[in-house]
Design a protein around this nucleic acid. Structure first.
Lengths: 346, 346
DNA sequence: CTGTTAGCGCTTTCAG
DNA sequence: CTGAAAGCGCTAACAG
């Protein structure tokens, strides 16, 4: 009952070997495209494999061979379109290789993050893609020391010198702010993202730099600290509009919060863009579909995913990290949520 | 250079065992929470594991133990919010177990689908979650025969008797159609989903039944075959509106196509809902945010993911399939894209 | 309660 | 070019 090869049971290289009349080592060679196999023999083995419906056991291969042909993707959560776009890019790129993808969600728990990284780096996966890492310092050193392949996505916190792909957050925020200034806005509210993320800081800095360049005082009361979620966009807009001297435009650090702003403004009976101009960041698909369509800073999310996957694959192949940090350009997408404040008169 | 345990190298149960002064079997027992270990010993081993930074190798565990503690998720693609919602539900549920999630994207290739299933069922994962399977017939039999645990999500094609979670598509479409009829619409256009999917058929049937119930002739020219993507919603709306006697309402089989309908109607200078009422299906987040917010049939996507994951976990635990098919209720969400056709006069 | 003994299915030297 | 042998790190009966 033990070695009885039932028809529907798993087929191992041994069975294939026996059927094909070769040793199992040869079968292994065929599987691994080893050159040292006579074409004739290879064909015979290949046919047998097909006939028997042989499927190599990845666990075993990885145990014996030392690599898993799997990469791990660590994301904070799955709640927003933002992550979805990035995953899509990664998936696209991976579909051309034969790497599998294991998905880990940290649910915004820094502890879980470090924990996962430790586990994953321990044989489960060959490389790691870390989206929006919270506390990379906790493990980047370990990873680097061990020479474990990884790429950071959308992170620009510490000045660590490691592979990462991000977007020109500073530039994007600067451009958008400047655009509002050129429309004639002088009181521009700003809602930040989670300030423990590098990108949030960069966006805030870009906003401030634009103001400075145009000699507009940077009033602290016009900056509201948000967290990238819609409710905070709503709250931020309310806070800003409640000011004695409210802003004529609000720049939210992402589209999701900008939608919260839209709601808040509408609920107060004000119109967009006539009364208040609104700008977002990311250019997630919804931003074009809401009413009014939101002027936003496009972040090439899907491309970021693709590029990151490419980088990781390269590192895996060459066994050395080549490029260090790639910044993909952001672009201002002007839609209908912004106009000159002078329009009010009209 | 071979067995030299460098400080930063991987720690195995052997090292832990040696350090703790027990046999490696005991360490294994501790890892697996086996009851047969003296509390005292367990503590000592646990401490040693911690100190040495031991992390169990999943590949090895799975090879030896015959299970991987990983489940596979097979989705057609990552392009739509639809899948995202489902994944979120699955992820939520999984976060309470210690199962890992491997993500496979078939990119709508039926061949790839069957292929993946074959591979996965071969040791890579302990169970399979299949979202919107294209050609389940290709492998359901194999899976069932092998008693391989799996759950189908949003599939109601063949009458196969296997674990699945879906929504009351027929009921949802019936209710929505009836709602339009009660508003006074008599010519109601319908844009189907991919007709190779069971849910599409059910929705079409629900639509037809509602018409029949209310003695409204079911005109074939009012049904346009779509594919669930936005462009087809656009095309479908154009085709329907080009009819000699165009419909006063259009019911699209999902929200994404409904958005295409919105575009098409607007591009023709007609207003929603004044000139044309529009109804969608799914209730993806965007549907509430576009202009005008779309009346739609809510499908509990996130919940479907959760329930499916629960079912699979149960099957995995009890090693038997318990429940067979769960239908989660749909619900009509009335928003601003629908009104009585008589409003035109107003 | 704990140690011993076999493998899981495959990759990899090392000899032919 | 091909076979034999030695593990990869761990689980799972068996004996104590």
């Amino acid at each position: 009952m033990k070695t009885t090869p039932k028809t529907s049971a798993k087929v191992t290289i041994f069975e294939v070997a026996a059927e094909a009349g070769v040793s199992f080592a040869t079968v292994s060679r065929v599987i691994n495209n080893d050159v040292h196999v006579k074409p004739e023999t290879r064909q015979r083995v290949l046919k047998t494999m097909q006939r028997l419906g042989f499927v190599a056991n990845r666990q075993a291969r990885s145990l014996a061979g030392g690599k898993s042909n799997t990469i791990g993707l660590l994301v904070p959560d799955l709640g927003t379109a933002y992550i979805g776009e990035i995953i899509r890019g990664i998936d696209t790129e991976l579909s051309w290789s034969d790497l599998d993808l294991i998905l880990y969600t940290t649910h915004r728990t820094a502890a879980k993050e470090a924990n996962y990284v430790a586990n994953l780096a321990h044989g489960m996966v060959d490389g790691l893609l870390l989206v929006l890492p919270r506390n990379p310092v906790d493990y980047i050193e370990t990873l680097t020391l061990r020479k474990f392949p990884f790429v950071l996505i959308d992170h620009q916190g510490t000045a660590e010198n490691c592979p990462a792909v991000g977007a020109t957050n500073w530039q994007g925020a600067y451009t958008a702010t400047e655009y509002l200034i050129q429309l004639g806005h002088e009181r521009i509210g700003f809602i930040t993202g989670s300030m423990d993320l590098g990108c949030s800081e960069d966006r805030l800095k870009g906003y401030r730099s634009a103001l400075r360049t145009h000699h507009i005082p940077d009033k602290p009361e016009l900056v509201y600290e948000g967290d990238f979620f819609q409710p905070d966009g709503y709250a931020g807009a309310c806070a800003l509009l409640d000011l004695e001297n409210p802003p004529t435009a609000i720049f939210a650090s992402n589209d999701v919060m900008a939608m919260g702003v839209l709601d808040a403004v509408r609920n107060r009976g004000q119109r967009i863009p006539d009364d208040i101009s609104v700008v977002g960041f990311d250019n997630i698909p919804q931003s074009a579909m809401v009413y009014p369509p939101i002027t936003t800073v496009q972040q090439p999310l899907e491309q970021m995913g693709r590029v990151a996957a490419q980088m990781l694959i390269n590192i895996l192949k060459k066994n050395e990290k080549e490029s260090n940090r790639i910044e993909l350009p952001t672009e201002l997408i002007v839609r209908s949520s912004t106009s000159s404040p002078r329009d009010r008169a009209g």
